[in-house]
Amino acid sequence: MRFEEWAPLYMEILEEFGFSRDEDEEAARLLKGLLSVRGGDLTVEDLDSMIRGGRVLVCGNGPSLSGELDEILKDSKKRSAKSPPSGMDDPVVVAADGATTPLLAAGVVPDVIVTDLDGYLPDIVAANAMGSAVVVHAHGDNLAALKEYVPRLKRVLGTTQSVPLEGVYNFGGFTDGDRGVFLARRFGAEEIRTIGFDYDDPDVTPRKKMKLAWAKRLVEMALKEVSSE
């Protein structure tokens, strides 16, 4: 999604949540600076080679995640028992931030973690050490986390919800989950499946309900555009 397409949605989000565009842009500049002094980080070419033409499983951190993941793992074991698995059988697993924890508990190391660094950071750091690429999102509320954790991570690519900068991208999306879907779409996934996206979870705060409503709207938008391509 080009920023020109995303900008009207972004302005709606700023107004609805009372976020500061200036603070978002400050965070993006901070992330750019943190990444510019490093070498060997994740590139858009790396993501393209991982995702293009393949199947992507985007995992949200809703209550349904563990059950849905169990079903997928059981089905995978059944298919593997019948015939040797092929590379096309295994999807690229994208974890939305806190979904990293239940994935690791199930023995699944995500291929990519999309995070604004407010999940359980020890598990994100551990998964990164085990090979997960990390797409770190900068916004006005996570400057301290960026300073603390970006230097501790490797294979990082930066994103922003405001105007993209050199080395800090905007692929579209607002919450970690829908940004994972937009990421898969941007890099040419042939199929995108979502699990753990509980848009109607009653056990969340009113503010979280607002975010889930946006996530639903944006995921539906992204998947509709994928199906029409």
Rank of each mutant, 00 (worst) to 15 (best):
K32I: 03
K32C: 01
K32P: 03
L34A: 01
L34R: 01
L34T: 00
L34Q: 02
L34E: 03
L34F: 02
L34D: 01
L35K: 00
L35E: 02
S36W: 01
S36Y: 01
S36M: 03
S36F: 02
S36N: 05
V37K: 07
V37A: 04
R38H: 00
R38T: 01
R38G: 00
R38E: 00
R38W: 02
R38Y: 00
G39Y: 00
G39V: 01
G39R: 02
G40P: 01
G40I: 00
G40S: 03
G40R: 00
G40Q: 01
D41P: 02
L42G: 05
L42A: 05
L42I: 04
L42R: 03
T43G: 05
T43F: 04
T43N: 03
V44H: 03
E45M: 07
D46M: 05
D46A: 06
D46R: 04
D46T: 05
D46I: 03
L47V: 08
L47Y: 09
L47I: 06
D48T: 14
D48C: 11
D48F: 13
D48G: 15
S49E: 14
S49N: 15
S49C: 14
M50H: 07
M50F: 11
M50I: 15
M50L: 14
I51K: 08
I51R: 08
R52N: 13
R52E: 13
R52G: 10
R52V: 12
R52H: 14
G53I: 10
G53Y: 12
G54H: 11
R55L: 09
R55V: 10
R55D: 13
R55Y: 13
R55T: 13
V56Q: 12
V56L: 12
V56D: 09
V56T: 12
V56W: 11
L57D: 09
L57Y: 12
V58N: 09
V58A: 14
V58M: 13
V58D: 08
V58G: 10
V58S: 07
C59A: 14
G60I: 08
G60D: 08
G60E: 08
G62N: 09
G62W: 06
P63F: 03
P63Y: 04
P63I: 04
S64G: 10
S64A: 09
S64V: 05
S64E: 07
L65C: 08
L65G: 10
L65R: 06
L65A: 10
L65W: 06
S66M: 07
S66K: 12
G67A: 10
G67V: 02
E68D: 05
E68T: 00
E68P: 02
E68G: 02
L69D: 06
L69E: 06
L69T: 06
L69S: 05
D70Y: 04
D70Q: 11
D70M: 07
E71W: 02
E71P: 01
I72H: 06
I72P: 04
I72D: 04
I72G: 04
L73S: 05
K74Y: 15
K74F: 13
K74E: 15
K74L: 13
K74D: 12
D75C: 12
D75G: 15
D75M: 11
S76A: 14
S76Y: 11
K77D: 15
K77G: 13
K77I: 12
K77W: 14
K77H: 13
K78C: 07
K78G: 05
